[in-house]
């Protein structure tokens, strides 16, 4: 697969503090990646390094095939870090023109991209008159100007109201649907879960996991069950090797699978044992549950 960004043993120290420690991962074309981690886990620092604004202490990284300089590679990248930064005294259109000049592209796409984020009517307004949501959307338009190979978003919904968050997510989904590679840093897990196929999990600058979202922990999911004959159900479950841990909360039984099993097979199996379920749901752990499990495991 064509790689877009390769990071090898990257380390960044701020004095005594090690913000990123020996980090390695690769971003391949066409996937949507999430960088997960609590605040201060080194997400923004990592992005800062590959975006040429923070100096690395050790290690290396290269964009695309490694034959372009970082600043030339960045002309093919669209990125937004934390807050949208533009010249307050210029209009949206003038700001985007400046970005075009930096990236060395013509102005023909400005209107098109402003339309995508819904700012076309306000393009002649000065940047300082914009609301935070509009500023963030302008930043996305600016990142899309060059039809980038990869779009990097660092906390894109930070500080926005629910409506703004929804708008930004819809835009991200639209972009992802077009096959653009996306790298999304966030501490909001449901945000990552909704759009990402791959994740890199960081804690205190150390990589805990990188790979597909659904393979994050070796789990086959679990069943949530309700039944009128609860004691019998639990006994059957405990005597079957397919199941590991069994949790009972009020009248809801949660049974964790040791090996894959389809819900229809399970239902048939219980029916043959004379147990009729009133409630059957097969689920996988949510990203949040997986994330907490992963960070807890590593802590112990």
């Amino acid at each position: 697969m064509e790689s877009i960004l390769t990071i090898n043993n990257l380390t960044k120290k701020f004095g005594y503090l090690t913000a990123v420690k020996d980090l390695s991962f690769t971003i391949n074309k066409g996937n949507v990646y999430g960088i997960l981690g609590p605040n201060g886990s080194g997400k923004s620092t990592t992005l800062g390094i590959v975006l040429n604004v923070v100096n690395k202490t050790e290690g290396n990284f290269h964009w695309f095939d490694g034959n372009t300089t970082t600043h030339d590679a960045l002309k093919k990248v669209g990125a937004i870090i934390e807050n949208p930064n533009f010249y307050p005294y210029m209009t949206a259109f003038q700001n985007l023109k400046l970005v075009c000049k930096i990236k060395g592209i013509d102005y023909s796409k400005i209107d098109e991209k402003l339309a995508i984020v819904g700012l076309l009517e306000r393009k002649e307004s000065k940047f300082r008159t914009y609301s935070l949501g509009m500023k963030q959307r302008l930043a996305i338009a600016s990142a899309l100007l060059n039809d980038p190979e990869i779009l990097i978003l660092d906390e894109p919904t930070n500080g926005l109201d629910p409506q703004g968050i929804h708008q930004i997510r819809e835009i991200i989904k639209q972009i992802a649907a077009k096959g653009t590679t996306i790298l999304l840093a966030s501490h909001l897990l449901d945000e990552v879960e909704k759009v990402c196929s791959h994740v890199v999990v960081l804690r205190k600058g150390v990589k805990l996991y990188s790979g597909r979202v659904d393979e994050m922990i070796s789990s086959h999911g679990f069943f949530e069950l309700k039944c009128n004959k609860q004691d019998e159900l639990i006994q059957v479950l405990e005597n079957t090797k397919t199941f590991g841990k069994i949790k009972v909360q009020d009248n809801l039984v949660t049974a964790f699978l040791n090996e894959p099993m389809k819900s229809e097979d399970f239902n048939k199996f219980l029916f043959e044992k004379g147990i009729i379920l009133t409630h059957l749901v097969q689920r996988k752990e949510s990203l949040e549950e997986q994330f907490l499990q992963l960070t807890d495991n590593k802590q112990n």
């Binding site: 975006l51 040429n52 604004v53 300089t69 960045l74 002309k75 870090i81 533009f86 010249y87 930096i102």
Partner: peptide, 21 residues
């Protein structure tokens, strides 16, 4: 001073301007 206070220096670099440029 403005490039620093508006943080546009950072944005310029991210957009693909090198520090030398």
């Amino acid at each position: 001073g403005n490039e620093y206070s508006n943080k546009t220096l950072k944005q310029n670099l991210i957009d693909g301007l090198s520090k030398k440029e």
